[in-house]
Simulated scan of single mutants.
Amino acid sequence: MHLQFMKLSKEIFNKLNSKTGQIAVLIDPEETNSVEKLQIIVEKAKFASVDYFFIGGSTVTRSDFQKTTSILKSLTDIPLVIFPGDHQQLSNDADALLYLSLLSGRNPEYLIGQHVKSAQEVIQLDLEIIPTAYILIDGGKQSTVAYVSQTTPIPRDNTQIALNTAIAGTLQGNKVVYFDAGSGANQPVDAQLIKQVKAQLETVTIVGGGVRSIEQIEALKSVGTNVIVIGNKIEEDIDFLLDIQNYKSKVLS
């Protein structure tokens, strides 16, 4: 069998790369897995012209992941991108898989171990595989992903290490760099870090964790962030999607 990702289209990657300031809503199947909850989110996300749903979590079971992915796929045609917390979080109901390598830590399990465990399953998936350098940045509190992966985030004020890690990940062949301050972070990733990355690299950038305001979205967009991921804020206040709709309307007008 030939590796499937060598033959697949680059539709989702090209969309990621097409512009800055795109919005992804992160769905954690451990928190949101019923038709009723998902339907409300989907309806408001569609109204807000959300660009993607990302799906995944650090402690999600395979059954919850597959159930939630299947429900989402049945409810919307907004692209569905897997943001996996471990090797079990895979589904053909999605459109793409961010194939994450956790480069900010030094735990081999998340550099290559999880990938080996899922290799045979991944190459049989009928979806787009996008190699992604995953970099944790300290967001002011210990995140679940840092705890589960037993890795230490890069200090928020040490942009040079974060920048060098992004460069190294790109040189290794990763097509996307994902900076994450972690779920429920007190502070999002500093926009100035993205500005430095964009000055040195032609790469797709995704930023998540701790984004809670339109002002933060604007700041990240202004420095060239391709996709901004919103998670906890929408779980706490789903009407934030209305603010996003107003913001996107102004940007497009």
Rank of each mutant, 00 (worst) to 15 (best):
I112L: 12
T159A: 06
V145W: 07
Y147R: 13
L102H: 05
Q160K: 08
P131W: 02
F179M: 10
A96T: 06
S183N: 14
D157R: 14
N158F: 07
A96K: 05
P188Q: 09
G184H: 07
K117L: 14
L80M: 11
D190M: 10
Y178L: 06
I135S: 09
G140C: 08
P153N: 13
A119P: 08
L171G: 02
K195S: 15
D86W: 15
Q66G: 02
L127R: 09
S143M: 12
L80C: 01
Q114E: 15
S183H: 04
K175L: 12
V122N: 06
V116R: 01
I112D: 00
T152A: 10
G169T: 14
A162W: 04
L103R: 05
P188I: 10
Y99W: 14
L163K: 14
Q120N: 14
D190G: 09
A185T: 06
I161R: 08
Q124C: 13
F179I: 11
T151R: 04
K117D: 06
Q120G: 02
I123C: 00
K175C: 12
I129S: 09
K117G: 00
K195Y: 15
N174I: 06
P84Y: 11
P84V: 09
T170P: 07
D157P: 07
G105F: 01
V204W: 05
A162S: 14
V176F: 00
A166R: 03
Q120K: 15
V122C: 03
I194G: 05
L90N: 01
L127H: 02
I137S: 06
P79W: 08
S91K: 07
L163V: 11
K141V: 13
V177Y: 10
V122P: 01
D95G: 07
S104A: 10
L90P: 00
R156Y: 06
R156W: 08
K141I: 15
I123L: 05
P84Q: 03
K175Y: 11
I82E: 02
P84K: 04
I137Y: 03
Q142A: 09
E109F: 04
I82M: 02
V122W: 11
E109A: 13
A199M: 00
S143N: 03
D86M: 11
K141H: 07
A166M: 06
K141E: 13
T76E: 00
S149M: 09
N107C: 00
F65P: 07
I78Q: 08
T144F: 07
Y99C: 11
S104K: 04
V116H: 00
T165M: 06
D77L: 01
L201E: 12
Y147F: 12
T170K: 13
Q120H: 12
A168T: 13
G140Q: 11
E128N: 04
V122D: 03
V204F: 10
Q150P: 10
D86L: 09
